[in-house]
Design a binder for these strands. Structure first.
Lengths: 181, 181
DNA sequence: GCCACCATGTAATCGGTTACATGATTAA
DNA sequence: TTAATCATGTAACCGATTACATGGTGGC
């Protein structure tokens, strides 16, 4: 019917579907959930909400809290349809990775084994730090009473994936340091 | 001494270090190796080579093949130093993932279990396809006689990571379909 | 003669981040 | 009173992709 959704429109509609109401809401939610595989900044969210309103996929009303102006959005039926259409679209989704640590590793022949080892350790510590934050997130009581079950499953995926990455680092460190001695 | 390297400068210098000579070379090499975690297009490579030349990190000479004009680049000592400096820089590198399949999964509460299952299967097949291409790459005889050992290790990492991702999909499909029945 | 491949480059456009600007409310 | 948080928005900038333009070479 109408054109495709922009990347940001996808999170925005999805988050409205999960109960977010304001642009600020959406940003907070993204930052504690999808940020690691699908981010969004104010600079995208607010203009996108206006575009979606112009397309009739969301509707809004002023909803001030005291003297704080606030604009509350919700999905229209057309917006719900567009969300559902995207969620069931029969093509594989966009997937990309940007990994500077791996790029450095790829160019490892220009370094000594000890230098590569130092890089691996540093990167691993970075991943371990992310892992700690993910586990804290997982431990937090689910403040949503609406019982969304997939968000925690996605978080689990993230935790287990990074656990795997950490194990790969440890293993590779072990193998390289064996030959360094 | 001089400013930081742009993302594209990092691959460009690295590939020159591995023996690439022309912009075309660099692009071909990137496309069969780092593309999956660090891409580069002509639109970045050629202008970047000129900028690097202006900064004195690479030098170039015309090197026509018959009537085909061709410009051959190589690292200067300053370029080698800049490459090495980046490769041993003591901060964790940039890391980001963009995963639309996971975003759809995150919003899975808006779908039926069967729809989520269909999504998981489709995404898994996409990853299996990538896996096949990676394994073909791995099977290819190493056309470089210069015995770079880290590029194949990086490819191994990619293969094993995607194998993990495929297993996660299978497992999750199994668990969801058990409850669907 | 045609197609695949080698080779270089630019312009338009896009998606995104960052910094900035503004201002109210609430809790310490 | 001050800092944190709620709340909305824009402008400048950046990195990147895509499409386009050009043209030679080698093999079928």
């Amino acid at each position: 019917m109408n054109g495709a959704l922009s990347p940001t429109a996808k999170v925005v509609l999805g988050m409205l579907g999960l109960g977010a109401r304001t642009g600020y809401d959406i940003k907070q939610l993204v930052d504690v959930s999808t940020r690691f595989f699908w981010g969004a900044s104010y600079g995208q969210i607010y203009p996108e909400l206006k575009r979606l309103e112009a397309r009739g996929l969301v509707e809004a009303e002023d909803d001030p809290r005291g003297g704080v102006r606030r604009r509350a959005y919700r999905l229209t039926p057309a917006g719900e349809a567009a969300l559902k259409e995207w969620l069931t679209a029969p093509q594989v989704g966009e997937f990309s990775v940007r990994d500077e640590g791996l790029l450095r590793f790829f160019f490892g022949d220009a370094l000594t084994v000890d230098e590569v080892l130092a890089n691996l350790r540093r990167e691993r510590e970075g991943f371990e730090e992310v892992l700690r934050r993910f586990r804290e997130l997982e431990a937090e009581p689910d403040r949503g009473e609406d019982a969304a079950r997939f968000p925690p499953l996605a978080l689990r995926y993230g935790i287990e994936l990074i656990e795997w990455i950490v194990r790969w680092h440890r293993r590779t460190e072990r193998e390289l340091s064996r030959e360094a001695r």
